[in-house]
Design a protein around this nucleic acid. Sequence first.
DNA 1: TTGCGTTTCAAACAATTGTATGAAACTATT
DNA 2: AATAGTTTCATACAATTGTTTGAAACGCAA
Lengths: 223, 223
Amino acid sequence: MATDQTRTAILVAAERLYAERGFSDVTLRDIVAAANVNLAAVNYHFGSKDELIAELFVTRSIALNRERLRELREAEDAGGGRADISAILRALVGPILRGCLGPENQRSPVAQFMIRASIESVPPIRRIKTKEIDHLRKFAAAMQRALPDSSEVDLFWGLNFALAMAHHTIRESERLTKLSDGRCDLDDVEDVIDRVVRAAVLGLTARAPAAKSAPKVAAREAR
Amino acid sequence: MATDQTRTAILVAAERLYAERGFSDVTLRDIVAAANVNLAAVNYHFGSKDELIAELFVTRSIALNRERLRELREAEDAGGGRADISAILRALVGPILRGCLGPENQRSPVAQFMIRASIESVPPIRRIKTKEIDHLRKFAAAMQRALPDSSEVDLFWGLNFALAMAHHTIRESERLTKLSDGRCDLDDVEDVIDRVVRAAVLGLTARAPAAKSAPKVAAREAR
DNA sequence: TTGCGTTTCAAACAATTGTATGAAACTATT
DNA sequence: AATAGTTTCATACAATTGTTTGAAACGCAA
């Protein structure tokens, strides 16, 4: 059993490579080369490539969800049982953004891997991902308590949009930097979180759907 | 030259399979089986697998960008040269959403393929994707004309968030349906577009500057 | 040291991948 | 009908994939 040296070496190398290049482009031979272990070690310690991926994802998924719930509880405690909508959304998108962006995390595999995982749906992950819905329901419920007057549907859409902005910003951070000629500072993580949360909250709390539907142009063309 | 029967058969089959299962999971043998053509036909007509993917992506990319620009011009013409911000964003996210969602397009590969393409960055696509930045710049410029008082950075963020909501909604439409127990109707495409545009516009036009730390539930209406 | 369970290693495995080949079948012009 | 150019086809190829194997090396209690 020793110190599980090779086991963790494989995990570390695999996560880094997967985060950098995606699942399909990384072979077991790439991993064992980066980890400086024997090829057979992967199957010995994990059984198969899929189980290695699954273990990676489960570990990170649990950690991320725990951190999210921790922040949610913290916000609820601070608000005397009912958390502010901003705080709820901040608990939802903060951990993943903090893990993926920022000067020290920009190229870090810690959570960049999770984004890959949520994108390329390899079989072992797809199974696990289904369970994440239960996790999101907790946030939906908290949002409902924070905004009891809003319709459920609107809340789900708000939740969806918040995650959308967080994930997309992480995935396309490079493109946003290039598009804005570096003027969008993705290293200031807390600023990014603020922007995402603010935009999501505005979409949720703004009354009257007035600002939409372009006046002159045919807004809706169907039906 | 006949009617390019096999050529188009390959294109159709490939796009459908790629849309359904992603690039890495679809082999040339899968494609030729679905297209009912010989294995060698792919390399004969396209040169290589990568060139087939590139041709698919280029074709769809051009069509999508053309439709976006068409709607943008239409909006600008209707506004006498200066388009409304809602109309601009609608031109940006409308075409892709219409192509991917809706009862008849839900499982249609027409543009679902594009989402896969923008996610799994296989080499031939990555090259083409870079050019899309120039395309987005046109929208950024239009947004600047529509909201001359907003800072450039805020506009880029708004553009980023609008695309984020559109793409994420397409990608995770199944999860949103499941999470909301079917109450979020993703078949009503125009409603989805309205929601995306409205949320994006609110984030852009709401007067609630900076406000670093979590803003209170100030329900700010857009002007 | 001896013995035994665990871990590592080099090598080979079978399966799958994209691509290439060269002959056959087809099309259309002469 | 004959020919030249194009397209199809079965087949083979080389490379890469995840996985397996059996022996060697190791750790450690007796």
